[in-house]
Amino acid sequence: MRIALLAATLLLTACSKTVLDYRQQTPVLKLDEFFAGSGRAYGVLHDWRGRQTLRFTADLCGEWQQGRGDLYEVFYFSDGRIEQRHWRLQQDSSGKISGTAGDVVGEASGQLAGNALYWQYVLRIPYDGSTLDVTVKDWLYLIDPQNLINRTTMHKFGLKVAELTLSIQQTDSSADCTPLKQQVAELAAKL
């Protein structure tokens, strides 16, 4: 029995992936390049059973200076909701990423390697007239210099409660973020 348990543990460990598995993949994802200027995102949210529950689009705009960035996001959901997020991001020379946002509990942290970013954080989401804190595990993969795929799982009490698939396209790397920054501020003021 011990041998079978050990074999199962080794098999599961060997199958687990880390972001470092992608360090040789190209093109190399650099957040300060991909999330510079304006972007557009399209996403679908599925519940724990795999059923589509929401669709959304999002406008994004990022500004970076010396490893620090502000990423402004406005989401338009299929149920009529409009939400905003303002990420304050930091990237060091080793590829470690950290960030905060108004609906993130504590700090998000992760690691870049090759064409991928893995990061994790606790997100406070609206739920049934209140809020719910879920652990978010985000995998981002750069496809080409203007396109990125984001695969996210959301967990509560260690169980997967939702999955998100998101496509992000950089539309203008030199865009002025002022209009979206103002929209984010106006939406945040209504909370």
Rank of each mutant, 00 (worst) to 15 (best):
E83L: 11
G37K: 00
Q66K: 10
G67W: 02
Y42Q: 12
Q65G: 04
S16I: 05
F35Q: 00
L45I: 11
V74M: 00
W64I: 05
R40E: 15
T26H: 08
L20S: 13
H46T: 07
H46I: 02
K17P: 11
V74G: 03
R23W: 08
F77L: 14
G80I: 10
D59F: 01
Q52W: 03
F56C: 02
G39V: 05
H86W: 10
L31C: 03
A36I: 05
L20C: 04
V19Y: 04
S38Y: 00
Q65D: 13
G69K: 01
T57C: 12
F34N: 00
D70T: 15
Y42M: 07
F34I: 12
F56S: 01
L60M: 10
V28I: 11
F77V: 10
V19E: 09
V19C: 11
G39E: 01
D32N: 14
S16H: 04
T57Q: 11
D47V: 02
Q24P: 06
L45F: 08
V28Y: 00
H86M: 08
D70W: 12
Q65W: 05
G37Q: 03
G80E: 10
R55H: 11
K17N: 12
V74Y: 06
T18W: 01
G50F: 12
L31P: 05
Y42R: 15
R81Q: 12
